[in-house]
Design a protein around this nucleic acid. Structure first.
Length: 446
RNA sequence: UCCUCGGUAGCUCAAUUGGCAGAGCGACCGGCUGUUAACCGGUUGGUUGCAGGUUCGAGUCCCGCCCGAGGAGCCA
């Protein structure tokens, strides 16, 4: 019996006859031999068929087999530096072929150039191509590394609701859902529920889709994206930053270890990623503003000068983050944002009420914000005051204020945007390729 | 919501001042024993986003609309 193997493990089978089950990715006919590049979901491998070694009908079938036909191919594994694939360097000398389905119509996605619109309309097929496949494999490893690190460090996974009452952070960006005649909203964050959960479990995290009805049309935005939100009791801002840098470096190092072939396909500079080890630089919002001001003074580009305009009190925008993080090789913490620029629940800086105990983590190489986090207000009276100041309905937050009445403690948490993290680690220039089926302002199909 | 760019063959794009709508790729046929998105020869391929207008004549100019992309704001 010939063993059925996955291409990922092909190196273990050199010299043996094996069967692979997969799909024809590309075909090159050279007269008396045919090269097939076959993908099996686990990798891509070149299969070589010589006319003299095969029955005529099998060779003739191989010469004409259409792209994306499903096949079982048997053959002998050998190492050959010339062989393309993932991992490359191995090929299968074909001895047998079973066509499971011969594709009858022309496959729409060739291995040539296509436009974004065309590919996104065919996302269900596009994910079969090497770049997309590699990106989504890295995504899966990032998600696995997230659960792995949090689990090993005492955080337990506690799901939070997707359907939520009003609340949230700004009602203009919520998707409304009819809930038996009452309006409810798709979750923007699980944080408030996480805060309830830590008083029961100590350290928790939620991991789920979040929804923002923002009319953003940029390479950093999706309307549906995945966020992991750890939250910890008895944790201040400094401890939070230590957690974040350990967490992020674990994710990056895990991808470097397990997804080297995928990063190579993506052309990612792994030297930049190898530097992602603690400690990460920490700069205050005030210092960030000084650096940005300096960059602004040094540039000769009038458009950039205009974009980098910022006055104290405003949040950093994309252009600021891009310019700032191009100066760093590691992710960089920016802490102590103005209270006015951030959410209502953030603990004030001791002695500086206009500054919050908030911290964002900005990915290097111009990628910008991947984490937003803070120490949360622990005093019930201050929390209630902030809710009023932000014009939020007190009724909806009654349970949330309760948390500060019954055993309040200093606590902190953060949210990591999975797709932005994948964009950075893969070195992509657009977030839409980091999720199997992206939801953007103008697209909900397929 | 605002700013900018775009929509021509299955795909990626050309088309001079308004004057016969083209190329490469794909597909198909033929050739080639080491291709890496192969290469060479041939065949096939069009409601120029939609609607109206100007003109002898519109892919090209004008008006309206539709669709997409990039960016701003907002955010992860």
């Amino acid at each position: 019996m010939i063993p059925v193997i996955h291409v990922e493990q092909i190196a273990e089978y050199i010299g043996q006859e094996v069967t692979i089950q997969g799909w024809v990715y590309n075909r090159t006919h050279k007269g008396k031999l045919v090269f097939l590049l076959v993908r099996d979901g686990y990798g891509f491998v070149q299969c070589v068929a010589f006319q003299k070694d095969l029955p005529p009908e099998i060779f003739e079938t191989l010469v004409h087999i259409p792209q994306e036909s499903s096949v079982r191919i048997s053959g002998v594994v050998r190492a050959d530096k010339r062989a393309p694939g993932i991992p490359g360097g191995y090929e299968i000398g074909v001895t047998g072929l079973e066509v499971v389905q011969a594709v009858a119509e022309e496959y729409p996605i060739s291995l040539k150039e296509h436009g974004v619109d065309f590919l996104l309309d065919r996302r269900h097929l596009w994910i079969r191509t090497q770049h997309q496949w590699a990106t989504l494999r890295v995504r899966a490893t990032i998600v696995a590394a997230i659960h792995e690190w949090l689990g090993e460090h005492g955080f337990i996974h506690m799901d939070t609701p997707i359907l939520t009452p009003a609340a949230g952070e700004g009602t203009t960006t919520l998707f409304e859902v009819d809930y038996f005649g009452e309006p409810t909203y798709l979750a923007q964050t699980g944080q408030l529920y996480n805060e309830a959960n830590i008083f029961a479990f100590g350290k928790v995290y939620c991991f789920g889709p979040t929804f923002r009805a923002e009319k953003s049309k940029t390479r950093r935005h999706l309307t549906e994206f995945w966020m992991v939100e750890p939250e910890a009791a008895f944790c201040d801002l400094d401890e939070l930053m230590e957690i974040e840098e350990q967490f992020i470096s674990h994710i990056v190092q895990r991808v470097l270890r397990d997804r080297a072939a995928e990063l190579a396909v993506l052309g990612r500079d792994t030297q930049a990623l190898e530097q992602v080890i603690p400690p990460f630089p920490r700069i205050s919002y005030d210092e960030a503003l000084e650096i940005i001001t300096q960059i602004r003074e040094e540039t000769d580009d009038p458009a950039l000068k205009k974009q980098l305009q910022i006055t104290w009190g405003n949040d950093l925008g994309s252009p600021h983050e891009t310019e700032l993080t191009q100066r760093f090789a590691k992710p960089v913490f920016v802490y102590g944002y103005p209270t006015a620029a951030k959410a209502f629940y953030m603990e004030p800086w001791p002695g500086r009420p206009d500054v919050s105990k908030s911290v964002d983590l900005l990915a290097p190489e111009g990628y910008g914000e991947i984490i937003g986090g803070s120490e949360r207000i622990s005093d019930p009276d201050l929390l209630l005051q902030r809710i009023h100041e932000h014009g939020l309905p007190e009724e909806a937050f009654r349970w949330y204020i309760d948390l500060r009445k019954f055993g309040s403690v200093p606590h902190s948490g953060f949210g990591l945007g999975v797709e932005r993290t994948v964009t950075w680690i893969c070195g992509l220039d657009h977030i839409r390729e980091t999720i199997p089926y992206p939801r953007t302002l103008k697209r909900v199909y397929p």
